[in-house]
Simulated scan of single mutants.
Amino acid sequence: MDSKASTVAPTQSKPKEKDFLNHLEAYLSKRDGVDKLLKISRYATKIILASSVLPETVPLTRRLKSFESSVGLSRKAFRLGKFVQDVNALRNSHLDSKQEIFLSIIAYGGEGLYYFVEQFIWLAKSGLIDAKHSRNLQKLSAWAEFIGYIGSISLKFRDLKRINEDEACLNSSIEIAVSRGAGCKEEEERRNKLREKELMKKLSVVQDLADGLMALADIQDGKGRFSDPLVVSCAGLLSALISTHKNWVSC
């Protein structure tokens, strides 16, 4: 064996980046992936309509209104059976305190009830059941969604607190290792992962706040201080973009 060859360190192959089209296929195969693309298109359309960029008399305005309404109805179809994920999330939660149990019931219970009621709203809007029930169902759905977001945001703030505590411990370990001249590559990698997790959690909080604002506008029937159509539409688009990013990264 060549002695020179034995001294050469093996080259580490870099992780292969995902092919864009394969990544896109994986993204679009998910229910949430398609739903969030529809959400982006819907709220982008609502922003155009709410900003009065186009005159009411222009034919394109009527087409955009029809498109927005159609997409909104299509999105409700994607919620069929989605409440099951909240039931399973609550069942599989590892809860350490009564407060976490309470917040989890609010978060998953509220969201689960919202998705459950949305199925009947879709049936009412589709004409299968009497539309006279639609208004009461929408009010119940909005309240359930709003309460769910209160619980969800509270849980995420608790998660952020834990992440910050873990990061503080890692920072201390890294400082001690550096002062002793020891390597701390593993700790630095863990810290980077924690920071990525923290960023995604903060984005989730922003998303929940935006969605909560829209739920509040629905509760107030568009008559409250935070119910301005342009503000609500911007909140919807922000939520959709954050969710799209999260789903894209995860698939």
Rank of each mutant, 00 (worst) to 15 (best):
E68P: 02
L24R: 03
A9Q: 15
A168Q: 15
V8N: 05
K125Y: 05
K139Y: 13
V71F: 05
A26L: 07
A89D: 12
S173R: 14
N164S: 13
N136Y: 03
V117H: 10
L199Y: 14
S51D: 10
N247R: 11
D228M: 01
M200P: 00
L28N: 08
A217F: 02
D228E: 15
L38V: 01
L216F: 14
K30Q: 14
M1W: 10
V178M: 05
S93Q: 14
F116C: 05
L213Q: 10
D221G: 00
K76G: 01
H23K: 15
K201I: 02
K132E: 13
K82E: 11
L113E: 03
L113G: 03
A215Y: 07
S134R: 12
R135G: 04
I48W: 08
K202Y: 05
K139T: 13
S239V: 02
R158E: 13
A5Y: 11
E118G: 00
S243E: 14
K201V: 01
S126R: 12
I101S: 09
F78A: 03
F116H: 07
L113W: 11
S126P: 00
G112R: 08
E175T: 08
L137V: 02
Q99Y: 10
M1E: 12
K125R: 15
K125C: 02
S134Q: 15
G151C: 02
P59Q: 11
F226G: 09
D208L: 04
L64F: 07
F102S: 09
R158Y: 11
Q12Y: 06
G151H: 09
S69T: 13
S134Y: 04
D96A: 13
L238V: 14
S41W: 11
A9W: 06
K197I: 00
D228L: 05
L37D: 05
